[in-house]
Simulated scan of single mutants.
Amino acid sequence: MALLTRVAKNPKHFLLITLTAPAIYGLIIPVVVMDVFVSLYQAICFPVYKIPKVKRKDYINFKRGKLTYLNLFQRLNCIYCDYANGVLAYGVEVAGRTEWYWCPIKHPDHAKRSHDHYEDFIAYGDDDDFAKKHKAKRTACRACESDCSSKDV
């Protein structure tokens, strides 16, 4: 009954939610596909190059969906957002470690970066002893263990 009251108070808002929900929840398909492919990529490639694996569980957790003060729809929304944002953060970290290993060179125009390793990359245009610097970055990438976001690595 509470839902009907809310709809009656603001039918335009309810209509907008109804129209946008498929676009929002339709993204679950590419998010699941990304989760599977990033996990496979990491499982296959990281051991070959001795890059420490990203712990998926560190990025995806569903604790907000357990909050008792949320209604069923709010809990489902929290679970969805926890998963989607967790998978994206997990993918960014896997891509960041890949970039750290293969091409740790900053962009010339300071492109926005989400992973924690970027600021420690080699400056764009810094060709002075590049091979030695690149080797050092690979060694640092391989040396990171549980917390690869540390700037001390």
Rank of each mutant, 00 (worst) to 15 (best):
residue 18 T to W: 07
residue 122 I to K: 04
residue 138 R to I: 09
residue 28 I to K: 07
residue 84 A to I: 05
residue 107 H to D: 13
residue 128 D to V: 03
residue 75 R to N: 08
residue 11 P to I: 03
residue 146 S to H: 13
residue 51 I to N: 00
residue 105 I to Q: 03
residue 57 K to H: 08
residue 14 F to R: 02
residue 112 K to I: 15
residue 119 E to R: 14
residue 74 Q to K: 08
residue 116 D to V: 03
residue 114 S to W: 15
residue 107 H to G: 09
residue 132 K to R: 12
residue 21 A to Y: 04
residue 109 D to Q: 12
residue 131 A to F: 11
residue 148 C to R: 07
residue 83 Y to S: 04
residue 47 P to Y: 01
residue 70 L to Y: 15
residue 38 V to I: 11
residue 76 L to C: 14
residue 79 I to W: 10
residue 82 D to F: 06
residue 20 T to C: 09
residue 25 Y to Q: 04
residue 36 V to D: 00
residue 4 L to P: 00
residue 41 Y to K: 03
residue 61 N to K: 13
residue 129 D to P: 00
residue 82 D to Y: 03
residue 112 K to N: 14
residue 56 R to G: 03
residue 151 K to R: 12
residue 5 T to H: 08
residue 23 A to W: 10
residue 122 I to T: 04
residue 96 G to D: 12
residue 90 Y to H: 00
residue 64 R to V: 04
residue 9 K to P: 01
residue 52 P to C: 07
residue 90 Y to F: 03
residue 88 L to Q: 09
residue 109 D to I: 15
residue 73 F to M: 14
residue 8 A to C: 01
residue 29 I to S: 01
residue 4 L to C: 02
residue 19 L to V: 07
residue 125 G to M: 04
residue 119 E to S: 14
residue 62 F to P: 04
residue 17 I to D: 11
residue 10 N to H: 07
residue 54 V to S: 02
residue 96 G to V: 11
residue 59 Y to E: 03
residue 35 D to F: 06
residue 105 I to W: 00
residue 20 T to M: 13
residue 84 A to E: 08
residue 123 A to R: 10
residue 99 E to G: 13
residue 38 V to K: 03
residue 75 R to F: 07
residue 117 H to T: 13
residue 26 G to E: 05
residue 24 I to C: 05
residue 87 V to R: 04
residue 118 Y to W: 10
residue 26 G to S: 09
residue 50 K to R: 12
residue 46 F to T: 01
residue 32 V to M: 06
residue 39 S to V: 00
residue 69 Y to C: 13
residue 146 S to M: 13
residue 104 P to R: 00
residue 150 S to L: 11
residue 116 D to K: 14
residue 50 K to S: 10
residue 36 V to K: 09
residue 124 Y to S: 12
residue 40 L to G: 06
residue 45 C to Y: 09
residue 116 D to W: 05
residue 60 I to G: 01
residue 145 E to P: 02
residue 26 G to P: 07
residue 120 D to G: 15
residue 81 C to Q: 14
residue 72 L to Q: 15
residue 139 T to W: 08
residue 119 E to I: 12
residue 93 E to K: 06
residue 108 P to L: 09
residue 91 G to P: 00
residue 111 A to K: 15
residue 52 P to I: 05
residue 25 Y to A: 00
residue 12 K to M: 04
residue 27 L to R: 09
residue 7 V to K: 01
residue 33 V to N: 02
residue 27 L to K: 07
residue 39 S to F: 01
residue 152 D to R: 12
residue 58 D to F: 08
residue 19 L to K: 05
residue 62 F to R: 07
residue 61 N to Y: 12
residue 11 P to K: 03
residue 33 V to A: 05
residue 41 Y to T: 05
residue 53 K to Y: 05
